[in-house]
């Protein structure tokens, strides 16, 4: 055995890219999570090609057909039809678009607001920090669902209103995490060295601080995207989110609630899709955090 070990050549140094690939795919949760999200994203993009029917086309003669695994089911409508005779598979596929659109745009809007606030508060400190901390505390004192309900009730529900309301509400976690991460990074000597080199504040914040807190940003962003998707579903379920006939998963669950004792699949299918997407995003976020962590001190 000893001889055999001796014959092993010295290890080949992995390249930077190989090391990153190893970290990303070495994490099962990250691989699975990214896989689920990529699959749903592909479905959302290719929905017009994949969907067998127009998701808005009603056919009152073919209402409430069960999915194929029921005895009464048929392969004409693999996931059955809803109470207006719309093909449920097509609606579920198109629903991925709404969920991802909301998740992404809310994440971007709230991420921009929250990250800017956190960077400013953490970098400048002092009175600026006091003011922003006060804003964050105020925001944390507002219940998101109630506030969103009130806004949507006032302005009327539409995709745009839901996106803007959630985007303008959900920046709190970004701001809190970015603020403390910036505070930590700001006190490091490389920031002082850049200052002593005469670099402008914008250059220091964007070139020295932001790249070093980006890992935290990615993790918060995934969590927030998942939570925005769930919130949209909740708002739509309450009738104050996306308006019919748009195929939103939350709205589909809401429309199905009158039939849930006789046509359980109407709730189970969009519910499963929703749970799968959120699960995938959370898994990917967890994995990303672990993949980034071994970096350690630098």
């Amino acid at each position: 055995m000893a001889e055999a070990t001796l014959q092993i050549a010295e290890p080949i140094q992995p390249t930077e890219g190989a090391r990153l690939r190893g970290r990303v795919f070495g994490q099962k949760s990250l691989t699975i999570g990214l896989g689920i999200v990529a699959l749903i994203a592909a479905i959302a993009l290719l929905a017009p090609l994949l969907a067998p029917y127009d998701p808005y086309a009603q056919d009152l003669t073919r209402r409430l057909i069960p999915p194929f695994w029921y005895p009464k089911g048929s392969w004409l409508h693999p996931l059955g039809t809803d109470n207006l005779g719309r093909d449920y598979l097509s609606r579920t596929l198109y629903g991925a678009r709404i969920s991802l659109l909301i998740g992404l745009s809310v994440m971007v809007i709230s991420g921009l607001i929250g990250t800017t606030m956190g960077l400013v508060a953490g970098y400048f400190g002092g009175r600026v920090d006091l003011l922003i901390t006060f804003l964050i505390t105020t925001r944390l004192a507002m219940p998101v669902i109630l506030f969103a309900l009130a806004v949507v009730a006032l302005l009327g529900g539409s995709l745009l209103v839901v996106i803007l309301t959630l985007g303008l509400l959900k920046w709190d976690r970004f701001a809190v995490v970015m603020r403390s991460a910036t505070q930590q990074t700001r006190s490091l000597d490389y920031v002082a060295a850049a200052e002593a080199a005469g670099a402008s504040t914008a250059r220091i914040v964007l070139g020295e601080v932001l790249p070093n807190i980006a890992p935290h940003l990615i993790v918060v962003a995934t969590v927030e995207a998942a939570s925005a998707i769930l919130l949209e579903a909740a708002l739509s379920f309450l009738g104050l989110g996306v308006q019919p006939p748009l195929p939103s998963w939350g709205l589909m669950i809401a429309e199905a609630k009158a039939y849930m004792f006789f046509s359980f699949w109407l709730i189970a299918i969009p519910g499963t899709a929703l749970a799968l997407l959120v699960f995938g995003i959370n898994l990917a976020g967890d994995g990303l955090r672990d993949a980034i962590a071994p970096d350690g001190r630098g």
């Binding site: 490091l188 000597d189 490389y190 002082a192 060295a193 080199a197 790249p211 070093n212 001190r297 630098g298």
Partner: peptide
């Protein structure tokens, strides 16, 4: 120009 104490925190790891 400065030279700082801790060479682990004085160089931007990225």
């Amino acid at each position: 120009q400065p030279v700082f104490q801790d060479p682990y925190s004085s160089l931007n790891p990225r």
